[in-house]
Amino acid sequence: MVAPPHAPHPLLTVDDLVVSFDGPLGTYRALNGVSFQVGAGETLAILGESGSGKSVTVRAVMALLPRHSATIERGTIRYDGEELSALPVRRTRELSATEMAMVFQDSLTALNPVVRVGQQIAELFRVRQRTSRREAWRRAVAGLERVGIPNAARRAHDYPHQFSGGMRQRVVIAMALALRPRLLIADEPTTALDVTVQAQIMDLLRELREADGMAMILITHDLGVVADVADRVAVMYAGTVVESGPLRTVYDAPAHPYTRGLMASVPAPDRPGERLTPIEGMPPSPLATPAGCPFHPRCPVARAACRTDRPVLRVVATGHEAACHYAEEVMAGVDVRGAA
């Protein structure tokens, strides 16, 4: 895959990643050739429906896949020129502790319930930067202040359950940003929160990203949240990236019928009550991914070739890639339903 010209030195490059799981029903592929890049300081949103492989992808990057059941069958993950998949897991973990950090949807599971939050953050400075106890605590409090926790010096002594959901997510963000990572991965960071609190957290993430010049991978299923923060978007379907490109290009001139269907499924704020045009059917089970294009059973453009030949991700315009045999027609806005 050729690096798009606007990102000459991608910070993270994932190429043709294939991950399988051993489950009770046999082995199945959760990722079937995932490719994408994130440039330094850039925010990439990964969009996709439940089970499309978003979390598995970023867990593979962070070396957080369950060791006994998951296998990386193929593909490469490069961080700043270093191939992570070739490194021992320990080195990846080290990198992922300092260079990359992750924020999960559920803030409760990310924190140790029996350790004061200040202590949990201070621990990072003590272990990774070998600072004194006192200095580590001071930095932890400063970190909590930075994410907008009121009375941080006092609240640092509290336990996770003493914080509200939104405040707890701030604590998790403070922890993730403690060592000033260059890449922050946020997996549905606001899904569990109310809209007004979600807006606060997204604003905070945007601010911190700009202040630190940090790159970000944001996973979400909310097209509106993506539109608010992302520079580029990667759309996943059935374990692969089916389209990626600049935010507005992907939203306004999608090149993949799935992306197009996704956009048409969302109620438009200015046309209440108008009949929606959902994608027919359901995403395939990972145990029975269709041959050819994985989207073909639901695709309004599908033709004979789609049932047998698997389309690969290819450049359809500068910085814009799609995995569809007929991407040019889709982009040109040919009435996909009529074309079937």
Partner: peptide
């Protein structure tokens, strides 16, 4: 007003810039 302004819009560039009210605190 705050609730409406906080709700993310799928294509913010397609509608006129909306007022943005950030509520402080939680319920």
């Amino acid at each position: 007003r705050a609730l409406i302004s906080a709700a993310p819009v799928p294509r913010p560039w397609a509608s006129p810039p909306a007022e943005r009210i950030l509520l402080t605190g939680e319920v």
